[in-house]
């Protein structure tokens, strides 16, 4: 039995670009996520109870913010990847140029 990909999607000229972009965005999110975790740990929860906007505390704003931020980053990533894929579509040397 052959063990290649289930669907052969062919070479991906934008592969290297997308990998690099993914790592950069992952690091950005990591830093923001770690900020949430360590703000709670280092202040023993006190910072999380501070009211920051419209009667909502930092825990709620930061927590919901992390969820929204994930979606925003995902949309930016998709837009950039799609643009690069379109730009390099049909080029044989895309991998090197990317």
């Amino acid at each position: 039995m052959h063990h290649g990909p289930a669907q052969d999607s062919g070479p991906d000229p934008a592969g290297r670009y997308k990998t690099r972009l993914g790592v950069v965005m992952f690091i950005i999110y990591c830093v923001v996520y770690a900020g949430f975790v360590f703000t709670n740990v280092l202040t023993e929860g006190r910072a999380m109870q501070v009211i920051v906007v419209a009667g909502l505390n930092l825990a709620v704003v930061y927590g919901v913010g992390l969820i929204v931020f994930a979606l925003v980053l995902a949309l930016i990533y998709n837009a950039l990847c799609t643009r690069k894929e379109a730009e390099l579509a049909g080029t044989d040397d895309g991998e090197e140029r990317a």
């Binding site: 990909p5 999607s9 990998t19 992390l66 969820i67 980053l73 995902a74």
Partner: peptide, 17 residues
């Protein structure tokens, strides 16, 4: 939800390939 960031940015496409 944050876990999906790892899935999308690090794992999704390379795994598929």
């Amino acid at each position: 939800l944050a876990g999906w960031i790892v899935a999308l940015f690090v794992v999704a496409e390379p795994m598929k390939r």
